[in-house]
């Protein structure tokens, strides 16, 4: 009995929250002030909610802008946690990167960050400047989560907070994660991020009901990573990075349909695309079986990346950028 009451209360709370959100969105502007320590959050009044920008202050006083354009999509309740764990039946999502087209503009990263309200240092899809050996050609390599079919990260999670769905997507349930960071250690591709401190996010975002399918609002002490935008897929739309790529580098689709589509809406046969371009998966020898393919950067359509510039780009956080080259051959 008591349990039921509790559950109802919870539901009510959620509904209230949703109602509140809907109302505030309908009214249009939200002037919200969040005072968590030094972090202040506000959004200006606009004619149309879809074009509101929210300015958020990072811990050290720098400003970054979160595009609130996507907000309207979350006034509807997300799918239940159970459905989010199961995924979409009969689908197997894949992503293909045509490296010959990538010019390293990082528009995919920007689109992703706007979609997920991430802090600027969390690049769920990161564009690397690669050069495998002294004598080989440099190229740009955008890297999302590979949504491995044999995912090392999922294996090691002690509580099943990270899980693999039937549509191939690997997600994290931030409401279950205990923050042990085994998955950060286990992912060989440095794909995962951790919310070390209280997340910096607009109050309007913090009020959205949580779903593993979009990974926000964030919670301190939990991990996060690229999620292939399942909440967009459910609306029949492609992930933010795919549509955000101006070079049409990224293809996304359903392997079962044998088709992938890029930002220009060009849909091609997946198997043929992979075959014609001798596609490969990054570090196949690790046996993680990524769901992400790369087409080799042959006949590039962009100037080659300047390897000298690594670490010299200005970073948003104002700190001295890192110039550690890790495993890179210079």
């Amino acid at each position: 009995m008591q349990e039921d009451n509790k559950k109802d209360n919870k539901k009510d709370n959620k509904n209230n929250r949703r109602d509140f959100l809907r109302k505030s969105l309908i009214t249009g502007g939200v002037l919200a002030a969040g005072a968590i320590g030094l972090e202040k959050v506000f959004s200006k009044e606009g004619e149309k909610t879809s074009t509101d920008d929210t300015t958020v202050f990072t811990r050290d006083g720098k400003v970054f802008r979160a595009d609130m354009e996507c907000l309207h999509e979350y006034k509807a309740p997300p799918v239940t946690n159970e459905e989010a764990r199961k995924g979409i039946a009969g689908k197997k999502f894949v992503m293909v990167f045509d490296l010959a087209k990538c010019d390293g503009c990082k528009k995919c990263t920007e689109a992703c960050q706007a979609m997920h309200f991430t802090e600027p240092d969390r690049e769920w899809i990161k564009v690397y400047k690669m050069k495998d050996a002294e004598t080989t050609a440099p190229y740009y390599m955008p890297k999302p989560c590979f949504h491995c079919d044999n995912p090392p990260c999922t294996k090691v999670c002690p509580v099943g907070a990270t899980f693999k769905r039937q549509d191939g997507i690997v997600l994290i349930d931030d409401e279950r994660c205990i923050g042990c960071r085994s998955c950060l250690a286990a992912c060989p591709y440095s794909t995962r991020f951790f919310n070390w401190s209280d997340p910096i996010q607009p109050v309007a975002v913090a009020n959205i009901p949580y779903s593993p399918e979009h990974g926000f609002p964030r919670q301190r002490g939990t991990s996060e990573k690229c999620d292939f935008c399942p909440h967009m897929i459910r609306e029949g739309k492609m992930p933010a990075c795919v549509t955000g790529c101006p070079m049409q580098t990224i293809y996304f689709g359903d392997q079962n349909e044998d088709a992938v589509t890029n930002s220009a809406g060009v849909t091609v046969k997946l198997s043929q695309l992979l075959e014609d371009n001798s596609a490969y998966r990054y570090m196949e020898e690790l046996g993680t079986e990524p769901r992400v393919y790369y087409l080799p950067p042959k006949n590039r359509k962009y100037p080659k990346p300047d390897m000298e510039s690594i670490g010299k780009e200005k970073k948003d956080d104002g700190k001295k950028p890192n110039s550690d080259m890790g495993n890179m051959v210079m």
């Binding site: 240092d121 690397y128 591709y189 956080d317 950028p321 495993n327």
Partner: peptide
């Protein structure tokens, strides 16, 4: 080991790489 991932550590805040 954690400082030597397969993919290079590029363009991240300084305190991430040490």
């Amino acid at each position: 080991t954690l400082l030597h991932p397969f993919l290079p550590i590029q363009d991240v805040p300084q305190d991430w790489a040490q």
